[in-house]
Design a protein around this nucleic acid. Structure first.
Length: 430
DNA sequence: CAGACATCGCATGCAG
DNA sequence: CTGCATGCGG
DNA sequence: GTCTG
């Protein structure tokens, strides 16, 4: 037996480092990547941008962290001249009631389309600019009668002013209609729905000469999950009605509670925000006994659980997306064989108990709301993501001890932000 | 009018 | 192997 | 795309 000879994995050869911004343990490789990629990082309350790392911090999974040599090296980016001011605008937006203001839906709908186009085109800043404009218009309590009137609002400049005039006149905008809905563009839109195919790869495949999905599915580079999704692209593209999401959720919920009533489960995403339908269901699972330092147990649990779902026939197929995260294709068992339920996408993940509410918050979204919340947290001197809520020392920029979070409300309380019900977190759409 | 705006951790691929 | 670039996702 | 200095 060649027990002494094992393949060298990349992980074994890496030196691990501690990221001073969020205390996460990263490989030196990744950390250096981050340094080069984001040459400066803002700290709240001061404009200094710096980055520290421990190149000699080594991790052994069994023995824990051993510091072989503590060299602190700092990278300094350009110094930010302007003072970071507390932006009352954002505060208002965060805490204000965000009731649907459909007075100017005719305009925002077109702008939303434009934002979508810019995203597909890869222009992140224009996409963002349109979203800012939409937000601004939604907060405006009157019906907009002219581009000039809208120009007074924040984030509306000369370009959008013109577009609004056009929208008011024609109901649409030549930038929208001017985009030909060609076969190529349609294929592009479908391709980007496939996991791990974004706009770059979609373009690459288009340039390779694929004209239809049928041709594309034979591409040898495709992974099983990609092939499966292509095969069922229409079925899986169907939106799940809320009622059905509830049944799916209930099924998993009962399975879990039968195992142990202490399991925590939350269906996040659009479902939690109270929307009528969604393309997938996003489920987060935890348990008080899920410890942060024993993630293998959590991985094992989820693996077994999802396998059980498959044995029962509820889950027809599943694809790992990481050790504690799966894409499960599920179908509600139907008594009427002639009318089976459709296959649905369920994102299942299990997390340590400490991260449960942070993960739920992050996964509930929407994107725009959560991003604002993260920005707001930084301003208030906290680091917030799906694994940590911790104060940042304004002088050193170092992240302190993670705070204990036992509910979603805790997070809002710590940040001193009024709790927002999930239903009101719909900032991007509607 | 030029430059800022920016989740970030991770996988992957390339050149040397 | 290292250094570097870049795409993706949620 | 808009905003800032």
């Amino acid at each position: 037996m060649l027990t002494t000879i094992r393949p060298l994995t990349r992980q074994n050869t890496n030196t691990y480092c501690q990221h001073y911004l969020n205390n996460s343990i990263l490989t030196a490789r990744t950390l250096i990547q981050q340094v080069t990629r984001f040459s400066y990082i803002y700290f709240p309350g001061r404009g200094i941008a710096s980055f520290y790392w421990h190149p000699k911090l080594k991790i052994n999974k069994n023995e824990g962290i051993t510091v072989t040599e503590t060299t602190t090296q700092s990278f300094r980016g350009p110094v930010d001249k302007k003072n970071v001011t507390v932006d009352n605008e954002i505060d208002k937006n965060i805490t204000a009631k965000f009731g649907p203001n459909s007075l100017n839906k005719n305009i925002t709908d077109v702008l939303k389309e434009l934002a979508k186009q810019e995203r597909a085109a890869g222009d992140f800043f224009r996409e963002r600019a349109y979203h800012a404009a939409i937000k601004s218009i939604k907060a405006y309590p009157k019906k907009i009668e002219s581009g000039k009137e809208a120009r007074e609002l924040k984030f509306i400049g000369p370009s959008i002013e013109m577009k609004i005039d056009e929208i008011l006149k024609t109901g649409t905008c030549s930038y929208v209609t001017g985009y030909p809905d060609s076969a190529e563009r349609k294929l592009f839109n479908v391709l980007t729905k496939i996991p791990r195919i974004g706009r770059i790869n979609a373009l690459k495949y288009l340039n390779k000469g694929y004209k239809t999905l049928e041709e594309f599915i034979d591409d040898s580079d495709l992974q099983p999950d990609q092939k499966y999704i292509i095969k069922h692209i229409n079925e899986l593209g169907e939106k799940i009605p809320r009622l059905e999401m509830n049944i799916l959720r209930e099924y998993i919920f009962r399975m879990l509670k039968n195992l142990d009533h202490r399991y925590l489960i939350e269906a996040c995403g659009r479902f939690r925000r109270g929307e009528k339908c969604s393309e997938s269901l996003n489920i987060v699972i935890s348990h008080p006994e899920f410890k942060e330092d024993a993630t293998e147990n959590i991985d094992d649990f989820l693996k077994k659980f999802i396998n059980d779902l498959k044995i029962q026939g509820f889950c027809t197929e599943y694809f790992p997306k990481g050790p504690s995260k799966y894409l499960a294709i599920c179908r509600i068992p139907s008594k009427d064989a002639a009318n089976p339920y459709l296959r649905r996408k369920i994102e299942l993940r299990a997390v340590p108990y400490k991260n449960y509410w942070l993960t739920v918050l992050a996964n509930t979204g929407d994107e725009v709301f959560y991003k604002s919340l993260q920005e707001k947290s930084l301003e208030k001197g906290f680091r917030l993501n799906d694994t940590i809520l911790a104060p940042i020392d304004p002088n050193s920029g170092m992240v302190g001890e993670p705070l204990i979070v036992n509910s979603e409300d805790d997070i809002f309380k710590i940040l001193n932000i009024k709790y927002l019900a999930p239903e009101t977190r719909d900032w991007k759409s509607s």
